[in-house]
Design a protein around this nucleic acid. Sequence first.
RNA 1: GUGGGUGUAGCUCAGUUGGUCAGAGCGCCUGGUUGUGGCCCAGGAGGCCGUGGGUUCAAGUCCCAUCACUCACCCCA
Length: 444
Amino acid sequence: MSKVNPRTPKGFRDFLPADMLKREYVMNTVRDVFQTFGFEPLQTPIIELQETLFGKYGEEAENLIYSVSHGRGSKEALSMRYDLTVPLARVVAQYESSLSFPFKRYQMSPVFRGERPQKGRYREFYQCDVDIVGVADTSADAEVIAVVVTALKRLGFPQFTVKINHRQLLTAIGQYSGVPDAQLPDLYRSVDKFDKIGADGVGRELEERGIAPDVVRRMLDLITQQRPGTGNLDFLESALGDLEAARVSIAQLRGLAVDLEDAGVTPDDYAFDLTMVRGLGYYTGPIFETVITEPNIGSISGGGRYDDLIGLFRRESLPTTGVSLGIERIIDLMDVFALYPDDIGGTVVQALVTVFDESTRRDSARLAARLREGGIRTELFMEDKKLGKQFNHADKKGVRLVAVIGPDEAAQGVVKLKRLADGHEQVVALADAVASARQLLDLR
RNA sequence: GUGGGUGUAGCUCAGUUGGUCAGAGCGCCUGGUUGUGGCCCAGGAGGCCGUGGGUUCAAGUCCCAUCACUCACCCCA
């Protein structure tokens, strides 16, 4: 039997303990914020019926959905989930009688896309979604935006902006400018690259796609306004207020601004940006995206209102809005901005209890039990090695406190505690071991 | 799907016009230190030079193919 080269499939990753501690810190912080806003946890299977997923994302995205099979074949065509939104729609339709509406849920789970991986993009990655099902009013949109803003602030992000736009407003602008309906998707796709290629680039690309130059210029004039507050809305209202779609969507965004203020989201945190477009086709109303501009790293959250999606699983749809945190990118940026607290080391272990020799092994084991009882995460050394090796093990792993019980200590009923950071040592009675250890570790 | 880049020790990499080119740093192991980590010193283990073919007296080095990894584009988180 030849040895197998150890590796993961392309685009799939392992997370070693030091990474997991960071990821769990971020996820726990975010989860706590979600619950603070009253969102409930939901878990759905990694595998869905193919029919559940197909026809929801568009033909191109469908090619990226993983199919699943097993040795005996399968009567059912199965796929791995592509996002968490479509499974949510399925759950809502399937369990509506046992859910309370408005239904507010969060889910943090891996999703799978068979794309070619590159920096910050993987085939398995976590999505972190909050959605509100059953509320058509913009107060729901404001709440999911407030969740994002709160989570990012709690994680310590110094500066970010939630860009807000409206799907129908964008359509109205396109139609007003004279873009043929059939080319509206092209319009979205090009405008979406505004940050990257600028107004000139967008204009050039649209003209290459066959849209008349004067149409392009009129459209760009409308979307490139950069007025603070609701200034962009005022401008658009006077420019195309007689269009029904424009009037309605502008009114909604004005309502959203008021709701945001009530939710504690200040105008510093967001901006109405007519150049922001979301890729997915199912959005129907306000759309949002959070960007960090200092290093121009792209978006770290995105979402919007998708009032029709649940209708694909149910006679009548339900108004729904939600947002997804780009947790993988956020985790990368935590390192860039050095936002992790100091006490996230490379290990969960706070104290290592050494074993001097066979004669003291039981004393060490009992000390370890005592420390654990006292709420200290404790490792009992497992091998027969010299003390120096045991200290080395603690140091390399990042354990901050080492306990020694040799024959002398055992005879006197004491333990020697050493803090590795500064080499400080103290000998305490076994009965005081927990209190002293906690003190040396700065635990309360 | 398109276009670049890179494959040499566990890791990061050096290796000149083809000819002592099998190397460095870090890590690992042993000892200096038989009751104490980091720092220092001495020693040691570890490599089919991605794989297959070709050119040559001679290939880590040149050529072809192939696989893997990686970056960017398309698209997206």
